[in-house]
């Protein structure tokens, strides 16, 4: 089964989650939706931040593709989702300007959702579905295009 979408293809998507199965399912879903050709998976906030920082330093010379969408879990070892966002916000604004960050969590606890809105991040409650991805992208790019 192939999903056709009217949306433009994204450069690359970064999945940051310590749960293998979540990553497996989300990667599968995104691939089937064909919203991108490149999906990068990292297992915690620390490695995700290091990856982005390296991209930022390398600039255009980087071999890796800069992600256009980051799907971020909250509960992760080493550096969790919110700690990642604090680090991420210190990167160049120029660099961050064309990246969309969405938190992807099972928690619908007000404590988590309100903290996410403090960071101006989208908030998606797991499981990730085609509808949710489409809603997120159309919401975000509706203003842009």
């Amino acid at each position: 089964m192939a999903y056709t979408t009217t949306m433009k293809k994204l450069r690359s998507i970064l999945l940051v989650d310590d749960n293998d199965t979540s990553n497996f399912l989300n990667e599968r879903l995104l691939k089937r939706m064909a919203v991108t050709d490149e999906i990068k998976v990292l297992s915690n906030g620390k490695s995700a931040f290091e990856f982005l920082e390296k991209l930022n330093r390398a600039g255009r010379s980087s071999i890796e593709t800069k992600p256009e969408l980051i799907l971020l879990d909250i509960n992760m070892p080493v550096v969790d989702g919110f700690e990642f966002l604090e680090l991420y916000n210190q990167l160049d604004e120029q660099f961050r300007s064309d990246i969309l960050v969405a938190i992807l969590s099972t928690s619908n606890h007000p404590q988590d959702t309100s903290r996410a809105s403090d960071f101006n991040a989208y908030y998606i409650i797991k499981p990730l579905t085609i509808e949710k991805v489409e809603a997120l992208l159309s919401m975000h790019y509706a203003g842009a295009e």
Partner: peptide, 19 residues
């Protein structure tokens, strides 16, 4: 919260299995 993640995953896996 911790129970929810594996449950959500299991639901996703079953759906994938069906597919």
């Amino acid at each position: 919260h911790d129970l929810k993640s594996p449950l959500v995953n299991a639901e996703g896996l079953i759906m994938a299995l069906r597919e």
